[in-house]
Design a protein around this nucleic acid. Structure first.
Lengths: 121, 121
DNA sequence: TATACTGTATTAAGTGATTAATACAATAAA
DNA sequence: TTTATTGTATTAATCACTTAATACAGTATA
């Protein structure tokens, strides 16, 4: 568990983003335990309340669930896990296409640039 | 002059972004007059100080210049104008490639999705 | 000349989001 | 039965951004 933070977005948003990327990549098993709020806060050097904020939102979104005072877990609903990946993809593509349009960058140039950038390193 | 604001980013940042997109698209002549702070504020329904904040940063970045108390103008340095476009392109491509990598999306899938999304509408 | 524009600067207040401090109840384990 | 760890809730403090209220000097225009 390691996240590099930027200063633009709220920390709790970046934490959620990180979990979603892990889910989208299939690094979490359905039902898998995740670190406690305090443990995550320690690992990432953030405030426990910030971790709680992130987990609370993830729970509201159905990404994780909590039974009693047991450690929270990744949802067992594989449909939800699948949707996370598709949402991230959709967001990335939409944002890129929007940018490309806003500056009148021809499609083939955009595609070429993506390809070249992707391939180097 | 028409900007649709989101609630995530500071207004003055979005104003700068808008001007950069105009420049990148070639909608501004080098040396062209731009609206006064007060006029822009009226058009966009924002506070004059917010407009001033945006212009001040653009001036610091060399995008616009001001002589005496005359209306500010787009820089005459065409090299700078060219760089604006390239920076926006670079940012967009980098962000997209980064997203694609973070979720292990195969390159050809990414390219196909961009193409399809671009073509519809 | 007077009026209405420019740009610029200072200071203060307000607002919402974010983070922080702290406490409490429940459960598991030593 | 303690002790430590869990999740949760409440309240306070902090911070960036925005807005606001003015003021001043220079310039164009009526």
């Amino acid at each position: 568990m390691d996240v590099k933070f930027n200063n633009r977005d709220p920390v709790y948003v970046q934490v959620i983003r990180h979990f979603k990327e892990q889910i989208a990549t299939g690094l979490f098993e359905p039902g898998q335990e995740i670190p406690s709020r305090r443990e995550l806060a320690n690992q990432l050097k953030i405030n426990p309340n910030t971790a709680q904020r992130a987990y609370k939102e993830m729970e509201e979104q159905g990404l994780i669930f909590t039974e009693g005072n047991l450690p929270s877990r990744i949802t067992k609903d594989e449909q939800v896990l699948k949707m996370v990946r598709e949402e991230l993809i959709l967001e990335a593509v939409d944002a890129f296409v929007h940018s490309v349009r806003s500056i009148n960058l021809p499609l083939h140039e955009a595609l070429t640039l993506v390809q070249n950038t992707y391939e180097r390193e």
